[in-house]
């Protein structure tokens, strides 16, 4: 770890930001959906609710991708490989 380009703490910050962006993006979609629902546009509201759900489900996927990136930058290749395996499994889940 001493010779790492990126520290564990910096990888942590990257993960923290990814998770926060995903959650707030989903909440923003839900807020728009709720507003459209109150304005009696149920079809449009449904699309925003769905977008929020998709954003939320993709948040851990993005977090795993960022972990792979972060550990690659930190030259922690074993953990990069582990993250890529998890990412592949999530991709399989999408295709099932």
């Amino acid at each position: 770890m001493k010779t790492a380009v990126v520290t564990e703490r910096e990888v942590g910050r990257l993960i923290q930001r990814t998770l926060q962006i995903g959650v707030w993006l989903a909440l923003a979609c839900f807020a728009v959906g709720l507003a459209l629902r109150l304005l009696a546009h149920p079809a449009a509201a449904g699309n925003w609710f769905l977008a929020g759900v998709v954003a939320l489900i993709l948040t851990p996927v993005a977090r795993v991708a960022m972990l792979a990136f972060g550990y690659w930058r930190a030259k922690e290749y074993a953990f990069t490989l582990a993250a890529l395996v998890v990412l592949s499994l999530l991709l399989i889940a999408v295709l099932l």
Binding site: G46, F49, G52, V53, V54, I57, P60, V61, A93, L96
Partner: peptide
Amino acid sequence: GVSAAASALIFLRQGLILPD
């Protein structure tokens, strides 16, 4: 988060998740 996402991705395709 990851285990729930892996299952939820399958359920989303199957239409089991009610977005609203």
